[in-house]
């Protein structure tokens, strides 16, 4: 026996079917198509992911069906990457070299600041004159604790290995916070880039003059734009859009949000520099 539904209910069913059909018909791009730019940077702790997402989505959507996906958690980013989704990855060179050992990536572009693709990290202090005096001291720096500790280890070398457990690290959102923390007495030393120290010189020459450089690290690359290996030819249009960002005002502004002012192709760099991005 057939159940007879009231007319109004039959109409609802029809409408629900239409809505479901319409929803299922919408072309949903699978996560990690070549149209996505993935971003994670352990060298900065600025919680600006919503701003980055809004600005990059706005910029990229004008160039095509592209989108931007920032990550705040290293693990989440790495799990995503292990699935080798199609797209372009923006990541720090320090992280790139670590990741490359387990997830093969190929660097295509390197970010530049003031035209330079590399930066040097330095350790500065106000009232401390030598490295051994850092025992018990607080060192402020931007980025994850893993990153800060590894930079410090590299800077101080094996001869000061015993000093490391005696140092307290304080992760702050950005370099300028770290430098000001030393000037205003919340930290004894700051781990920052040379570029940031130069910025402090422009803001407050007196504070800058009070800081002494205790140690400096090797030069390292700024942000890297990479693709998963084997290289995807279909990532070329998106790489081109990233490479030419500085040519448009909105693109230039978005680059500044990443602390960059342009990109250089890896294949246009000196061979000696490129070697630094290859695994031993």
């Amino acid at each position: 026996m057939m159940i007879k539904y009231p007319t109004i209910f039959r109409q609802w069913r029809a409408w629900i079917s239409v809505v479901l059909w319409a929803l299922l018909s919408i072309p949903i791009a699978p996560a990690g198509t070549p149209e996505t730019v993935f971003f994670y940077n352990p060298e900065s702790s600025v919680d600006n992911f919503a701003a980055l997402k809004a600005e990059f989505d706005d910029y990229l959507s004008k160039q095509g069906a592209y989108s931007f996906q920032p990550f705040s958690e290293r693990n989440t980013f790495e799990v995503m990457l292990a699935g080798k989704p199609q797209g372009v990855y923006l990541l720090s060179s320090w992280h790139y070299l670590q990741l490359n050992a387990k997830t093969p990536l190929e660097a295509k572009l390197v970010g530049t600041a003031k035209g330079e693709p590399q930066q040097r990290k330095i350790l500065t202090a106000k009232d401390i004159d030598n490295i051994p005096a850092l025992a018990g001291a607080t060192i402020a720096g931007a980025g994850s604790e893993d990153y800060l500790r590894s930079q410090l280890q590299q800077m101080l070398g094996a001869s000061y290995a015993a000093l490391m457990p005696k140092i307290k690290l304080l992760s702050v959102p950005k370099d300028i916070d770290a430098l000001m923390a030393v000037s205003f007495g919340m930290a004894s030393a700051a781990l920052s880039s040379e570029n940031s120290l130069n910025k402090l010189a422009l803001i407050n020459p007196k504070q800058h003059a009070q800081l002494k450089t205790l140690a400096s690290g090797e030069k390292s690359f700024l942000l890297i734009a990479a693709v998963a290996k084997p290289s995807q030819s279909d990532a070329q249009p998106l790489l081109k859009i990233i490479e030419t960002m500085q040519q448009q005002p909105d693109g230039e502004k978005n680059l500044k949000m990443l602390g960059l002012d342009g990109w250089k192709r890896i294949d246009a760099l000196d061979t000696s520099l490129v070697k630094q991005l290859r695994l031993p």
């Binding site: 900065s44 919680d47 701003a51 959102p173 916070d177 000001m180 910025k199 500044k256 990443l258």
Partner: peptide, 29 residues
Amino acid sequence: AGSHITLNACQLGKLDTRYNADALDAVNQ
């Protein structure tokens, strides 16, 4: 020791006031 920065670029634009673009990487919102 840490700061959280919100820059209202829209409002500054209306007031014809320029901001330091080199500081944009320090801006949260």
